[in-house]
Amino acid sequence: MIALSHVTKAFGPKQVLTGVDLVVPKGQSMVVIGGSGTGKSVLLKCILGLVQPDQGLITLDGQDVRTAEREAFLARFGMLFQGGALFDSLRVWENVAFRLLRGPLKRPKAEARAIAVEKLRRVGLTPETADLFPAELSGGMQKRVGLARAIAAQPEIIFFDEPTTGLDPIMAGVINDLIREIVTEMGATAITITHDMSSVRAIADRVAMLHDGVIQWTGPVAEMDNAPDPYLQQFIHGRAEGPIAAIR
């Protein structure tokens, strides 16, 4: 279980998170929604320790993430970045098998490659893709390679940062289905950041809406449409009129 309690973060004068309280139960798929620039990515980076929160407590299975042994802590996570964040200088299979080629999870090269090819197949890419470089792939293929890399070491917790941004609706649907299948199949805890409502409905067990630096609403996805929160309703229906200012 991941728990955030009164987490705050400012960048200079800009207060991004003003007191986030959020619990993500083990094995659940939580989708965090919210407008652009509301701090959704910062939230994920705070959990991973890529950004240090100014105040508050973040725990993983009851342990303060700041006191966890870093390598063992990170080994529990997989992350799909918004732009893929694939390493340009490495071939696709080396990107996917990155963790399996070095460090405590190191395997023989042939075995690491076989696992990478299997993970690529899992995300709908052919073995021929394995020897290409990331620059030779389309945006959708890069996302899928990023997804394969995120799941390659069978992590307990997976973060997806804007998994469908920049993709056509069909490819976005493919990625959504893949994420849902993989999370269910692996029994992983997942946090997904998106403002794509079709992704929310496809991926989420629970939804949290981040607005003005706090969790404005959280609950099961089934309750989202009927929730009385005006901020949530404006956001999910994409209305220009409402409590959320259109110009931010």
Partner: peptide
């Protein structure tokens, strides 16, 4: 470029 495209963050999340 690696920093701008989040490859440095990706390295960290891959325990590197």
């Amino acid at each position: 470029t690696m920093k701008v495209t989040e490859q440095i963050d990706a390295l960290v999340t891959l325990s590197t």
